[in-house]
Design a protein around this nucleic acid. Sequence first.
DNA 1: AATTTGACTTACT
DNA 2: TAGTAAGCCAAAT
Length: 137
Amino acid sequence: MEINVVTVRIIMKKFPEKEKRTSKKKPVQEKSAEATFFDAVYAVVRQVPRGRVTTYGAVAEATGLRMSARMVGWALSVCSRAKPKVPAHRVVNRMGILSGRHHFATPTLMQELLEQEGVKVEDDTVVDFKQLYWEPS
DNA sequence: AATTTGACTTACT
DNA sequence: TAGTAAGCCAAAT
């Protein structure tokens, strides 16, 4: 299934309402909307192509949370919960700095993952960030 | 229950 | 041009 901004916005519409789960044997705190909020963020992040990067703000905008870039970081900080893995290493701040590197298994993992994809990193910053920047659409 | 704290960004001194 | 404030909102304390 191809997920685009429209799809994400539809998902976000469900954000405020409580979602009833059929399965009751999962008392996980997934109280309600986070699941869909996470999904929305993850859906966007998964679209980032290999070797490209995007920013928290861009993801936030694509999910409709225009000014809530922080929420994106928060969602990614718990992305271990996501079933299909999320290429969180492709999300950096607007300066191209790997501000989230400390949240990976090792502080250098994020950079290593990026370099594996051909993205050069210097001083915790993506080289040629402007060219590698990918805007969610 | 209230306050602080972020994997951020923009706007205004 | 650099520093501060404000906006976001769920978690953690």
